[in-house]
Simulated scan of single mutants.
Amino acid sequence: MDSVQVRLMREADLPSAERASAVTFFESERSTRRVSDPEIEPRSADASQQWVDRMRFFLSIDPEGCWVAIDEVAGARRTVGFAIAQNRAGLWFLATYGVLPSHQGQGVGKRLLDAALAHAGGRPGIFSSSVHPGATRRYRAADFSLHPQMRMVGVVDRSTLPVIDGLREGRADDFAWMDQLDRDLRVAGHGPDHGYMLDTLRLVVCRDPARPGYVYLDDRGRASLLAASDPATARKLLWEALASSQGPTLVNCITAPNEWAIDVGLAARLDIGQEGYIAVRGMPVPAPYLASGHFL
């Protein structure tokens, strides 16, 4: 579209990019919702602010990976698409990407993804993908392997919770070994992302240096990112997350190499379903590992 400009994101673009993101993902989730799924709710004000804060962080760390599509018609300007990618040492990841439904199928998404992929500079890559057919065609054309992922939802049967020991609250002085574990599992460490997550999430770590692992928990006790050296440590960390959950919980980004997570969820009486893909290029699917949607 001649009226659409794809350019690097600026901080002033964040509010309009958030609105485009909220509309895009609401419509996508509503169109793919199964009858048995809960009703799709619009993004809350708190969640909108969290999105803006996270994207501002990415913009401050690696601005060359942050792109927007701006439509200018009759003097009016609005964000109609966005692609936020980041490089961390030898790894590229796509934190979020989307185009307003009104502008899909017109080449805007391809231009955004091409810009984000150019930023990779040949690095291996990873991201979490929806089932949108147009987007998945672009990912395959870019040589990404699409690995189906599952999610588990429900209220934990607390009678199933085992006694867990050997864990403690995480601290900033854990970041060095956490980054080494990240490198073992996903090519590169999270680097500055750990500092951001520690400020906004609860961190629990396994204190056994021979079997390290960590999990970040959100304000409802849900596992936001989990990494471990072995399945036994991963199971222990996920059980800690389920024990911390308040009301309905969610365990997502479960891939086939992470069957340990399925075993824990089923034992806790959660329901299992399928949800999109983990896309990887130039690297295996991380395990034992549960990716974060934004921080991968």
Rank of each mutant, 00 (worst) to 15 (best):
D2T: 14
D13H: 14
D13E: 14
L14W: 12
A17I: 07
A17L: 15
E18Y: 09
R19Y: 04
T24N: 06
T24C: 13
E27K: 14
E29N: 00
R30D: 12
R34N: 04
R34G: 13
I40M: 11
P42W: 04
A47I: 06
S48D: 14
L59R: 08
L59A: 11
I61G: 00
P63E: 15
E64G: 14
W67Y: 06
V68Q: 11
A69P: 07
I70V: 15
I70T: 15
R77H: 08
V80D: 04
V80E: 08
G81L: 03
A83E: 12
A83D: 13
Q86S: 14
Q86A: 11
R88P: 08
A89N: 15
W92C: 00
W92N: 00
L94I: 13
T96L: 01
V99E: 07
V99A: 07
G107H: 03
G109N: 14
K110W: 05
R111C: 06
R111W: 02
L112M: 01
A115C: 15
G121Y: 12
G122C: 01
G122D: 06
R123I: 05
P124R: 06
G125Y: 12
G125C: 12
S128K: 07
S129W: 00
P133G: 03
G134P: 00
R140M: 08
D143F: 06
S145M: 10
L146E: 01
M150D: 06
R151L: 08
V155G: 05
V163P: 05
D165W: 02
G170C: 09
F175W: 03
L181T: 05
L181V: 06
D184R: 15
L185E: 14
G191T: 09
D193T: 05
H194S: 00
G195S: 13
L198C: 09
D199A: 07
R202S: 03
L203I: 01
V204S: 05
P209T: 09
P209K: 12
R211E: 03
P212G: 02
P212C: 02
Y214E: 06
R220M: 02
G221E: 13
R222L: 01
A223Y: 08
L226Y: 04
L226E: 01
D230K: 11
D230M: 08
T233A: 05
A234R: 05
L237S: 12
L237I: 13
L237V: 11
A241W: 08
L242E: 02
A243S: 10
Q246P: 00
G247V: 12
P248Q: 11
L250S: 07
L250C: 11
N252I: 01
P257K: 03
P257M: 03
N258K: 09
N258A: 06
A261W: 10
I262V: 13
I262H: 13
D263T: 10
D263C: 03
D263P: 03
V264P: 05
G265W: 03
L266Y: 10
A267Q: 04
L270K: 05
D271C: 07
I272W: 02
G273A: 10
G273L: 06
Q274K: 00
G276S: 07
Y277W: 08
I278A: 03
A279L: 00
R281L: 07
G282F: 07
P288K: 01
Y289F: 14
A291T: 01
A291H: 01
G293F: 00
L296A: 02
